[in-house]
Amino acid sequence: MTGMAKTRIKTRHTLAKAGVITGLVIGGLFAGLPIVWMLSTSFKSNGDVFQNPPNLITDTFSLDAYLEILGNGEQLRFFLNSYIVAFAVTILTLLVALLAGYAFSRFRFPFQRTINAVIVSVQVVPPITLVVPYFGLVVALGLYNTYPGLILTHMVFTLPYAIIMITAYLNTLPRELDESVKIDGGTSWTALWRVLVPISVPGLIAVGVYTFMISWNEYLFALTLTRTNDMRTVPIGIQLLMGQHSYEWNQMMAMSILGSIPVLLLFLLFQRRFIGGLTAGAVKA
């Protein structure tokens, strides 16, 4: 190869690299700027929110909006409710889905395919179709405006995904593991808890993180199946801040950030495992 051809290839390589970086930066601004603006607004006084020209950091930079939210019992109650509901949903979903996933992974039984197809199709049933009968059902069962009402209804969306992901995970574990327990006289129950559960912890964490996120973000049922502010969750709390007196934009943004922290943290901690499980589920589900 001549020197000139080499230089040409090198130039083309540099150009391609510059092009990709430019593209990535533009895309990054599109993705990131709205979030930066939310963050910036949460540190302003409400009077400076629509300052013209806009500034990322104003003279009134302070943590007042956060202190306002964190010092308000009603707002804290939204967080408490969200944590209670999301943790309960996560634990119950993992428990129920683990048993179901175990059945699908380790047993052959009549109607297996049919039951499996029902579980998969539940995922696409529109929440809005369910909300009218849920309202009737939850009121009839005396669960209106209670934690169990929210926990149970959230599970209808977390369970199918969790079952599919856990079944897939258990399928990757060799059968010899549970067979050896049975040779030692154990039952399928002991095989599940003594052998499979301990080595499934990574998979269960991924499913748990996803479950927590779904429950933490749920909006429609939280809106319709609760009535009083002491039962409402963070997404509804954010909406209530919007409705009240004038718009407290800085507090709305502070509450939004505080409300996003659990999911952001979970995602950053379990990023790799989570994306792996998610794409496997999304493509195959």
Partner: peptide
């Protein structure tokens, strides 16, 4: 860049709504 690009998806819809209203 991958983390930045995934960010919008990590916020709950209520937060997305208030960000865009702002």
């Amino acid at each position: 860049f991958r983390i930045v690009y995934i960010l919008p998806w990590l916020f709950t819809i209520a937060v997305i709504a208030v960000i865009w209203r702002l």
